[in-house]
């Protein structure tokens, strides 16, 4: 499916100056589509995501999801229809795992959905445990379940698998791909590892260098003809 043909669910133009780096990125994402933002550290990938999420405010540009304008003016975080996952699980340590997962929603209305997430993400054994006492890998599963519990139409992933073992990364990616099909959410993922993004967002990649898009297309296109020496080196096997 060509992403241009899909009715746009996210339209954004992010302009943001960070020290020496001037980020200027225009994005368009279809409903149910996933795209990997790829590039070296410091290219501005996470800032673009943070600007869409509302964690940071762009200096200029616009962000729109569906018909909803997120910027400008900046829409309050609680009214943004999106899920945001970073490498920090951000669990609420004073609550149990179950309370974390159902945080912000009425558990009774979503009981079946939460039970499905609990089973699929293997949270049974820690369901009633305090979030402060679970392992790092378990915390990532819980934060994923918590984000999915709200069924957001757009999911933003900022290196959520950093520091995890390969087996767990594979499982979490498979879970995310599975749920993106089930729920039908769109997804933008940021990572500096091409293999993670290729598995997570196999259809399309956008490459950032020095805050600008230098290439976009399928992973095959990127592999076949990388537009810059840096991209060639990032895609090369170790």
């Amino acid at each position: 499916m060509c992403w241009h043909s899909v009715h746009a669910m996210l339209k954004a133009e992010i302009i943001k100056k960070r020290r020496e780096l001037e980020i200027h990125v225009a994005l368009q994402l279809g409903r149910g589509e996933s795209v990997g933002l790829f590039g070296a550290s410091g290219a501005g990938k996470s800032t673009v995501l943070a600007c869409i999420a509302g964690i940071e405010e762009p200096d200029d540009g616009f962000v729109q999801i569906g018909g909803l304008k997120l910027f400008p003016p900046s829409l309050p975080l609680h009214r943004r229809p999106l899920g945001y996952l970073t490498q920090e699980p951000g669990l609420f340590p004073h609550l149990s795992v179950s309370k974390n997962v159902s945080f912000g929603i009425a558990p009774a209305s979503q009981a079946e959905w939460i039970a499905t997430l609990r089973e699929r993400l293997q949270l049974d054994t820690i369901w009633n445990a305090p979030a402060a006492l679970i392992s790092g890998g378990q915390a990532r599963r819980v934060s994923l379940a918590r984000m999915l519990a709200r069924k957001p139409p757009l999911v933003l992933l900022d290196e959520p698998f950093a520091g995890l073992d390969r087996q767990l990364v594979r499982e979490l990616i498979d879970d995310l791909v599975f749920w993106s099909r089930e729920v039908g959410f769109s997804m933008i993922a940021v990572d500096h590892q091409a293999e993670v993004l290729q598995r997570l967002c196999p259809q399309r990649a956008i490459v950032l260098e020095q805050g600008k898009i230098v290439q976009q297309g399928t992973w095959e296109e990127l592999d076949r003809a990388p537009s810059t020496p840096l991209l060639r080196s990032l895609l090369a096997p170790l």
Binding site: L77, H78, G90, F103, G104
Partner: peptide, 8 residues
Amino acid sequence: KQAALLGL
């Protein structure tokens, strides 16, 4: 911020 993004 995470809590706000979760709708609070």
